[in-house]
């Protein structure tokens, strides 16, 4: 009898704790997965492994920022993968012709064009973000294929500083962090302490109320999707420095994991609720999970099934715990 009373009370207390600090279970899960990894392969957890994990989680976490920002307004950015690829491919092909600044400029310019197009579609033409960004993503990929024919003879060159950023280490710390740490502080602070960040939450909670309070939707969406595309563009630059082999589908495999990282991190796809810190931990969890499933030496099919199931379970549990009432 006593136990029956105790148990719900305990669950309720745990639920309250998780509601107030939704990051705690995520961090716990991350440590748990690392623990399992250590059990599977004793000694694997060392500074080098840590550095590698962080290095590979970085582009994913940056791309997840695109998803968090857009999901806060109940949107999504499915063009982020394609935009990162475009930016990566463009920088590698323009640099040998016109130099590094031009390469980076053109790459980010191309990303911005896609972002403005997304913002126009969502904010002015009122196309659903899912459809709009899916469409522009496909168009961008198509354009990249056409573009490739023109530059096929020029060869590729990856700017030196991008290689340094993507693959180098200083004092054992991956250089990518020099980009990522300021970036994530900017995103976190931006969401909390700027009017634009507030507006993203406001739009996701009640767009009509935001309008009544004087917000012009098209401005917000245009700025949001342009920003998201720029972030994807920068991610592409970092990623090409890391992979060092431009291809037409370079960053595309990161797209759906970036959505998963945001969702695991507690961002609601219905808008108004979420945090970038959660998405960063989500990206780390996915990376560790990937390593673990590789170590298990399962057939590729089973690995993917397990990966999907784990994402589903984690998200369902997290949503259940953090849900009010």
């Amino acid at each position: 009898m006593n136990g029956r009373v105790e148990k719900p009370r305990l669950t309720a207390a745990a639920g309250q704790l998780v509601r107030d600090h939704p990051l705690i279970p995520l961090v716990a899960l991350l440590f748990m997965l690392s623990g399992v990894l250590e059990l599977l392969r004793p000694g694997i957890i060392n500074p080098f492994w840590l550095g590698n994990t962080v290095k590979f989680a970085t582009p994913l976490a940056m791309l997840a920022a695109c998803q968090v920002l857009t999901m806060l307004t109940a949107g999504i950015d499915l063009s982020a993968g394609a935009v990162a690829t475009v930016s990566a491919f463009v920088v590698a092909t323009v640099t040998p012709l016109f130099g590094v600044p031009a390469g980076v400029g053109v790459a980010l310019g191309a990303a911005l064009v896609v972002g403005l197009l997304n913002g126009f579609g969502v904010g002015v033409a009122r196309v659903h973000p899912l459809i709009m960004t899916l469409g522009t993503g496909l168009v961008a990929t198509g354009c990249l294929q056409v573009y490739q024919r023109f530059v096929i003879a020029t060869g590729t060159e990856i700017p030196h500083f991008l290689e340094w950023l993507g693959t180098g280490r200083s004092f054992g710390i991956p250089n990518g962090l020099f980009l990522f740490v300021p970036f994530s502080i900017l995103v976190l602070a931006g969401l909390r302490f700027t009017g634009f960040g507030r507006l993203l939450f406001a739009f996701g909670s009640n767009e009509h109320a935001s309008r009544l309070s004087g917000a012009r939707c098209w401005q917000v969406y245009l700025a949001l999707y342009a920003l998201s595309a720029l972030i994807a563009g920068v991610t592409g630059l970092l990623y090409i420095g890391m992979i060092r082999a431009p291809s037409l589908s370079l960053a595309n495999p990161l797209l759906l994991p970036s959505v998963a990282a945001a969702v695991i991190g507690g961002t609601s796809i219905f808008g108004g609720r979420g945090s970038y810190a959660g998405a960063v931990i989500g990206a780390l969890i996915l990376t560790v999970l990937g390593t673990m499933l590789t170590l298990l030496q399962m057939p590729e099919g089973a690995r993917r099934v397990l990966f999907g199931l784990i994402i589903l379970t984690v998200t369902a549990l997290h949503a259940r715990f953090t849900e009010q009432n």
Binding site: T194, F201, H208, S210, L212, S213, G214, A215, R216, Q219
Partner: peptide, 25 residues
Amino acid sequence: EALLMERSVHENIALPFSTHLGGWG
């Protein structure tokens, strides 16, 4: 129609401060 139901009292009251372009910063 006018409230952000999931957001705090503070954010709801402060909403009009952020809506115009000058308040985005």
